[in-house]
Simulated assay, not measured.
Amino acid sequence: MSSLKISQSVGLGGINNLNDVKPVQTALNKLLVLIPPTKALTVDGTLNPRIENSKTIAAIKLFQSKVLNVARPDGRIDANGRTHRKINEKLIDLTLKTTTISKMPVTKAVWMKTAINEMGESEVAGSKANPRILAYFKASKFWGTDDTGGTNAWCGSFVSWIMNQNNIEPVKSAYRAKEWANFGKKIDKPVYGAIGIKSRNGGGHVAFVVGQSADGKSLYMLGGNQENTVNVTKYNTDVWETFVVPADFDATTETLPIYTQKSSVAGSEE
C-alpha cells in the first residue's frame, strides 16, 4: 500500500463501507509505530457495533492526537480530509524510508540507518512542538521548548541525537551547526554517511551525505530542519565547506553513490 484510497468517511459518524474500512485498517497497521501502544487491527472491514469499544476508531483518534496534535480528536477520516491526507503523507514517508534503507550501500556508517528512520519527523505549527524534535534538543543540550522559528533551528540537534543513539559523542554546543566542523576528523572528499557543514544566512547548516548526482555537481543530504522536516535535500556540491567523520572511522573504505530517489531542493535559507 503506497497510499490510502477511500471514497467515503470512515470512523465515528462515518459511512463505514467495508471497502473503505479495510484499507483504513491496513494503513493504520502500517503506521503502528506512530500510535503506540496500539496493537495490530483486524483487517475485516467492520467496526465494533459498540462504537466505544472500536479499536479502529480508537486508533484513528490516537493518530489524530499524536500525529495531527488535535486536542479533541473526532475519530473520523473524511475522504481527502485532513486526517486522510496526513495518513497518506506518513505512508509515503514509510515507503521512502524502506526504499532508502534497502538501497543503502555496504557501509560502516551505522548511524545512517538511525538517521533514515527519522525521515518525516516535522515541526508542529504554533506553540506546540513535536516531542521527537524536543528529544533532539535535549541531545544537544539546547534549551528551546518550541520547534519553530529561526531561533529554534534544529539541524545540529538532529545530528547530535543521531550520534547519541549510536554511542558517539557529539561536539560541545552541538545545537550550533558550525560547531560540527570541530567533530571527529576532517576528510577531503564527501563519502556516504559523512557530516557536511555549510554556511547560510544567519548561521550554518549541517546534514549527512547520502549521495551525489550523476554529474557530481550536486550532493544529496539527509538532515533535520530542511523545509521544517527531516528529509533528503539536493544542494550544489560547492556550498559545502567541510566534511567530518568520527575520529576512529575509516572513510577510505566508503563510497559516494549516485542518488536517484526522491528529494527536495534546497531553499535560500538552508
Rank of each mutant, 00 (worst) to 15 (best):
G203K: 07
W154R: 03
V171D: 11
T151K: 15
E123H: 01
T229N: 10
N182M: 06
E227P: 00
T151Y: 06
V171N: 13
A177Y: 00
K186P: 11
A177V: 09
F137Q: 12
L134D: 08
E121A: 08
G204F: 02
R200F: 02
W154N: 01
A153P: 01
N201Q: 14
S173A: 14
G223R: 04
Y175A: 10
I195S: 01
Q165R: 15
A194F: 11
A214M: 04
V232D: 04
G156C: 06
V159R: 01
L219Y: 07
K138W: 08
G196F: 05
D146E: 13
T242E: 10
G156H: 01
K198T: 15
A247Q: 14
F158D: 03
A139R: 09
A125K: 14
S160Q: 06
A129V: 07
A177W: 00
A207N: 02
D238Q: 12
S199W: 01
Q212M: 14
D238R: 11
N225I: 04
C155Q: 10
Q226N: 08
Y136S: 13
V239R: 10
P131R: 02
Y192E: 01
A207P: 00
P131D: 13
S160K: 07
N166W: 04
F137R: 11
Q226W: 01
G196W: 01
C155M: 02
L222Q: 05
V171M: 08
G144P: 06
A125W: 10
M221T: 07
